[in-house]
């Protein structure tokens, strides 16, 4: 092993998903900040700081963790590390001390907002590292399909809520 090789207990993953919401960015942004309203895959509880502000930390519990027979602890943390209104929202995700779901995880989850013709595009990127002894023994390649599928579903929830509840650009103008 060289002085730069990662241990075989490390898994690196990255994915990107996007959604286009037929509503102006101002309303979408406000709805996005109310994470609990559209993230249905996890229970979310604010544990530090003022919710929705930089520095605040939420405890995020994957609802299906028990059903999927994941090792404890069944929660991780998300900290808002940076945001720029209607443009950018960056979370750092990390596990409970000692691990979450059987791994030590750290990730940056970045959501970029752009606006075009009264519509909002959100590109959500995850850069993730997982560390666990079990990773070294995995025979099947690890993938992030569950996480990616969950996020696609969550963004679809956001789209549905926004398009149902927020006025469209045309309605705003009239």
């Amino acid at each position: 092993m060289t002085n730069y090789d990662e241990e075989n207990t490390v898994f690196n993953g990255h994915y990107e998903v996007e959604v286009i919401i037929d509503r102006p960015v101002a309303g979408v942004w406000t709805q996005y900040l109310d994470i609990g309203s559209w993230v249905t895959s996890h229970d979310i509880e604010n544990v530090y700081g003022t919710p929705g502000t930089v520095g605040s930390i939420t405890r995020v519990s994957f609802k299906k963790a028990k059903e999927m027979d994941m090792p404890p602890t069944h929660h991780h943390y998300c900290k808002i590390v940076e945001m720029e209104r209607e443009k950018y929202y960056l979370l750092k995700t990390y596990s409970e001390k000692g691990g979450s779901y059987g791994v030590n995880l750290t990730a940056f989850d970045d959501a970029k907002f752009s606006s075009c013709n009264g519509k909002t595009k959100i590109v959500f990127s995850v850069y993730l590292e997982m560390v666990a002894e079990s990773i070294a023994n995995e025979t099947d390649p690890i993938n992030l399909d569950v996480s990616r599928d969950g996020m696609i579903q969550n963004l679809e929830n956001l789209k549905r809520i926004c398009e149902r509840n927020l006025p469209s650009c045309i309605e705003n103008e009239s």
Binding site: V47, Y48, G49, G55, I57, Y77, K79, V81, E82, K92, Y94, S95, E96, K97
Partner: peptide, 21 residues
């Protein structure tokens, strides 16, 4: 609050691991 959260928020009266983003 939690050792892991403390590392994030810099509650470190005693020497311990702290992070900076």
């Amino acid at each position: 609050i939690s050792p892991r959260i403390d590392a994030e928020v810099g509650n470190n009266a005693q020497p311990q691991f702290v992070t900076f983003d």
